[in-house]
Amino acid sequence: MADIINLRQARKRKARAEQERLAEQNRTLHGRSRADRKRDRSIADKAEKFVAGHRREASGDPDPPSIGPKSATRFSDKSDA
């Protein structure tokens, strides 16, 4: 005689196996642990702070002071006399 199989349980077992297969596939495609993501985020933040700290002017300044010969104060010859 044949083995008696509960079809409901067999369907559930098959669905679970399919979900596990899809989950394994997604883990290999997209799988990075939380620690990996956190480490990469902290490295990126550290690099951004380093670059921001070495910028010449602050990013929030609406009108940075200009430097160069055009911005220098001019003296006339009459002021020396």
Rank of each mutant, 00 (worst) to 15 (best):
R56V: 05
G53K: 07
R13G: 13
D3G: 01
F75I: 05
A35M: 04
I43W: 08
R11D: 07
K78T: 02
S59C: 10
T73L: 05
G60Y: 15
R39G: 04
N6A: 03
P62V: 03
A44F: 11
K14Y: 13
L7N: 12
S76P: 01
A2K: 10
Q25K: 13
K14M: 12
S76C: 06
Q19N: 11
S76E: 11
A52Y: 02
N6I: 12
P65H: 00
A47Q: 13
R37T: 07
K78C: 04
G31I: 10
D61L: 15
A23D: 14
P65D: 00
R27H: 09
K38C: 02
A15I: 08
I43P: 01
K70T: 04
E24M: 05
A17I: 09
F75A: 07
D77C: 02
I67Y: 01
E48P: 00
A2N: 14
R55I: 02
R34F: 10
D36R: 04
L29A: 13
S66A: 04
P62H: 02
I4K: 09
S42A: 14
A52C: 02
G60Q: 09
E18K: 14
R27Y: 14
S33P: 02
T28K: 15
S79E: 06
D36M: 11
G53M: 05
E57I: 15
D45R: 15
Q9M: 07
I43Q: 09
I67H: 03
A35Y: 12
Q19Y: 06
E20S: 05
E57W: 14
L22G: 00
E18S: 12
R74W: 05
K70P: 00
P65T: 02
Q25H: 08
S66E: 11
F75M: 11
R56H: 03
K38P: 02
A81N: 06
H30G: 03
R56L: 09
Q9H: 04
I67K: 04
H30L: 15
